[in-house]
């Protein structure tokens, strides 16, 4: 068992060749595959993280949209209620005003009819009394009857 420099040199050369061959044909492809897998895992994790974020953002947006829709619905209902109340009030007011107006008109009509009736009655009475007076005047008043009238008048005055 001697130390042989030929074996020594041969071992070194063989090892260096083996190192080169292994690196070239076995390790390099293997390392690149492992690196690719690392990249792939990284990418997939990033993608998963992104989609998770997107999903939660989407969720948030949906929630907000829902809340907004609900709020809008409430507002619409509220508005409708207010509008309907206002409209009802308006209708009642209008009806009331109309009723008041009709009543007033009726009263006025009655008044004017009454006045008209009074006026016509008065003119009727005037013309009638003129007619009566003229009828009486037309009749010849004699001395005797005139005397009677004066007497009666005097009598009346003296009795008082």
């Amino acid at each position: 068992m001697d130390w042989k420099w030929t074996s020594f040199v041969y071992a070194i050369v063989a090892f260096l060749i083996l190192y080169w061959l292994l690196n070239r044909y076995a390790f390099k492809p293997l390392f690149s595959i492992m690196e690719q897998r690392r990249q792939m895992v990284l990418e997939q994790m990033n993608a998963a993280e992104n989609s998770r974020k997107e999903a939660s953002a989407e969720m948030e947006a949906q929630k907000q949209a829902l809340a907004q829709a609900r709020q809008e619905a409430n507002e619409i209902i509220e508005k409708a209620r207010i509008t309907s109340t206002k409209q009802a009030d308006g209708i009642v007011d209008t009806a009331r005003a109309e009723a008041a107006r009709l009543k007033e008109e009726a009263v006025r009509d009655i008044e004017s009819e009454k006045n008209k009736a009074i006026a016509s009655l008065r003119s009727e009475v005037g013309s009638l009394s003129v007619a009566i007076a003229s009828k009486i005047v037309e009749k010849q008043i004699d001395e005797k009857s005139q005397e009677q009238i004066v007497e009666r008048y005097l009598k009346e005055v003296s009795s008082k």
């Binding site: 063989a14 292994l22 044909y25 390790f27 897998r37």
Partner: peptide, 26 residues
Amino acid sequence: AIIAITISAILTFVLARLLTRKLSVA
């Protein structure tokens, strides 16, 4: 020694080569 070194080196290379055949990422 020369035989042993040669066989060892060849064996190592062939084994490594066989084990790294059809590499796949996924």
